[in-house]
Design a protein around this nucleic acid. Sequence first.
DNA 1: ACCATACCTCTCTC
DNA 2: AGAGAGAGGTATG
Length: 323
Amino acid sequence: MWPPARVFAMTTIIRIDQPLDLGLTLQSGQAFRWRKARPSGGESGSQEWWHGFLQDEPVLLSQPSPGAPTLLIQCRRGTEAAVAARLRSYLRLDDDLPAVYRRFAADEHLAGTIQRLRGMRLLRQETWECLVGFICSGQNNVLRISLMMERMADAFGSATRLHGVARKTFPSPERLAEAGETRLRTLGLGFRAGPVAQAARLVADGEFPLAALREWPYEKAKETLMGLHGVGDKIADCVLLFSLEKPEAFPVDRWVRRAVEEWYGVKPRVARNGKPLKEAPYADVLAWAQARWGRDAGYANQYLFLGRRAVEREVGGMRTARV
DNA sequence: ACCATACCTCTCTC
DNA sequence: AGAGAGAGGTATG
């Protein structure tokens, strides 16, 4: 008899032929809405499950062990095939990561970082959610960004339930536009409430060509994104890299900046007035990275970011240990 | 063109 | 314990 009576959910298993560490990837600071979850009713054991959405479809994901060649998916009946396809796209399994690793092999810093972070992949996210997430990222940390995103969903998203996990989808531009700045402020967005509300209104009203950016070249798409209030170089590069098919994007935040300064000796240049700058200008770091890594700049960026942060945690690790 | 400052709020730190 | 700094940044003058 199939399915067996005790099976609470159909588990779809897919094989992957690319390096992947699912937990590391979902927690790598690119996306803010993946949460560890315990599906109810199953003998999930000690296995780690992640709950999130693929184009508004709630899913639970698990990888038996980091780097294992299989992925377990739970989703609503009837959505299995679509979800599996969306997941392959989301995880960019079409990127040949081993080839990227080979191109990085001679770079001692990247090679070292890859050893520790093998299987960390760039994601192909939905643009709207990605944009809002990174508008919220200024002067902020991952934990709080996630909280803000979750509160927006709780307030304005659509309810879903999957194997005991109740969560709401991330709200559309229309819904956030209706919400407005004041209401978003009450959700703890702080000074990011204005920019989020404005972007929502522009996208909802069709005054901002969010969907078209994917087809546009890097420079043009970036300029357009930076036309939005609250979107500068860094946030634009994040959205371009994580959701708009621009692998040459290279978001320069304090961690990446630290990495290129310390590991590659990228130094602030001397300004025209003769005084040395405090730090290398964004455009200088970007140009340097693109010259060095070309279309691999995005992967290099993500590895440098996590790699440099990992160093910090090792050094400071004992300090924060609770007893 | 460069620089300093304010912006909200939360968290960690001393 | 309570104040202060810092947090994956941006716009302004």
